[in-house]
Design a binder for these strands. Structure first.
Lengths: 158, 158
DNA sequence: GAAGATTGAGACATCAATCTTA
DNA sequence: TAAGATTGATGTCTCAATCTTC
């Protein structure tokens, strides 16, 4: 992802894609390393905690959790398996639809979130926000939002 | 990676990180899907071809190739294994340092690159460039470059 | 039949250890 | 001893198939 040297003479535009890949990798690497070393928490686990903390009763259907985290159904099943084994989340049946399983924060999960959140916030500040001016940040977020939204297509009438 | 609802009342800044994650995922997904379906080529393979095409004699040391692609040593070994089995690259010994192995483009690798490059360029245009104005694009690339560079450790003059 | 969740099999990445050469 | 590359063991993701419930 480093063919940013010269894609073609006079084609500066397409350097955006390799840059995006490198910037993303740099952020993931930095955040995961800091969360792991300071709290023993993988970034993926932290992201689950963040989503659940913000959900209505600290719980979410497996399916919705997977969607929020950009994971497949089996992917979220296994991630919750591991976090359940670690005592950070639990599984609860749904009273109105017995096909549904909720992933729910445990007390320990909440405590872990509170402990890790400042580390993550500091990392975002250090490795992302700090490098941009206010104006850059606005433009940056605006551009990212467009790209992220572009893929959220109306699924073909399904 | 979707805790962009509200990280905290009055903290809009940190929405940049989840947006970056989603935008990156959207791009990777779109490019990989198009390259796979139209050329039967995984995005990771295409990236190897891009790097090699731009390298001096169409070849690069395994180590440098891995660095360019943000892969570990074992990661690049195995990726080249698969591409070698598919006939897209070959391995050549280095005449001056017998520890070194070069990964080199084959004729078929070059042909595959020429066939896939327009598909990739079109994808970048469609899924990235098209969504941004010139001004946005400049700001976007400038911001990304700063973030990507921030993690680039001082390469020990090697 | 379709939706939600899980399971089994396979693909691909990493770490640590190993082998060869400098 | 260190550098370059590979191998073995292991972890996590995906797809396809399955089970249960709507």
């Amino acid at each position: 992802v480093r063919y940013d040297a010269r894609v073609r003479p006079g084609d500066v535009r397409h350097s955006a894609w390799p840059l995006l890949a490198r910037a993303h990798a740099a952020l993931v690497d930095a955040l995961d390393t800091e969360l792991q070393s300071e709290r023993g928490l993988p970034l993926a686990w932290f992201e689950v905690l963040v989503v659940l903390v913000q959900a209505p009763r600290g719980r979410l259907r497996m399916n919705d959790l997977g969607t929020a985290l950009l994971l497949s159904k089996s992917g979220i099943t296994r991630l919750v398996d591991r976090m359940e084994a670690a005592g950070l989340v639990g599984r609860c049946p749904c009273s109105t639809d017995r096909r549904v399983v909720f992933a729910a924060l445990t007390a320990r999960g909440r405590a872990t979130y509170r402990s890790a959140a400042p580390v993550a916030a500091r990392g975002v500040e250090r490795h992302l926000v700090r490098h941009l001016t206010k104006a850059e940040e606005r433009a940056f977020c605006s551009a990212l939002a467009k790209l992220a939204a572009a893929r959220e297509r109306p699924p073909p009438s399904a």
